[in-house]
């Protein structure tokens, strides 16, 4: 090994992997609209064209409010937002109050595996800017499919799951857990491109 190799050409030829590039290189991000959260996330927001997982203790703790700034921005683009098999009926007035343009929200009714199929189709099609899904009883293989589809179709994927799914491994680019008691906040469990902060980020979504 007498030859001395310059580092720059190796990097340019992409023969050396740099851990940081994933975070602030090509992968762009959508600001969450919550400054406290943006400051800790690599890239400063939701990873673009990737799967983000939101874990909940119960329904109705502000999970849509967390997404609202990003959804409001995406609903102004030409591509619609697909809401696949929501657990309740989306209330038009409520969504409008969150700033989301409802004429860009497509609601898809499906059950079980059909719902996952529909979510994957929407993501893969490249015609949707974002897909919201509530997968039940799924393994990481199914989530990986969604993650790949999100990358293929350049769409944002958000899945909402129960907090106990935290034990299962997940291929999502970002995993956050909403905490409502005793103090409302958010915990980042995994974020691609950086170490997840260990502490609870105080965030009052209803403030």
């Amino acid at each position: 090994m007498s030859a001395v190799l310059a580092l720059a050409p190796l990097l340019e030829a992409r023969q050396v992997w740099k851990g940081k590039t994933a975070a602030n290189g090509t992968g762009s991000h959508q600001p969450t609209g919550w400054p406290a959260l943006d400051s800790v996330l690599p890239g400063g927001g939701w990873p673009d064209a990737a799967l983000s997982e939101v874990l909940l203790p119960v329904d109705g703790v502000g999970e849509l409010r967390l997404l609202a700034p990003a959804l409001a921005r995406l609903s102004q683009t030409t591509r619609p937002i697909a809401v696949v098999a929501p657990p309740y009926v989306p209330c038009v007035a409520g969504w409008q109050q969150l700033g989301i343009a409802m004429q860009q929200v497509e609601i898809i009714q499906a059950q079980g595996s059909d719902a996952l199929w529909a979510a994957e189709q929407c993501l893969r099609s490249g015609s949707c800017s974002a897909v919201l899904a509530w997968p039940q009883q799924v393994d990481d293989r199914v989530l990986r499919k969604l993650q790949v589809a999100a990358g293929t179709g350049q769409a944002q994927a958000w899945v909402f799951r129960d907090r106990h799914c935290l034990r299962q491994p997940s291929p999502a680019a970002l995993r956050v857990e909403l905490v409502s008691q005793p103090t409302p906040g958010i915990r980042v469990h995994k974020c691609r491109g950086a170490h997840a902060p260990a502490t609870l980020i105080a965030l009052d979504l209803f403030g």
Partner: peptide, 12 residues
């Protein structure tokens, strides 16, 4: 696959 009425938009 999901039926004719499965995809829709809601309006006030």
């Amino acid at each position: 696959r999901l039926g004719d009425e499965a995809i829709y938009r809601l309006a006030p």
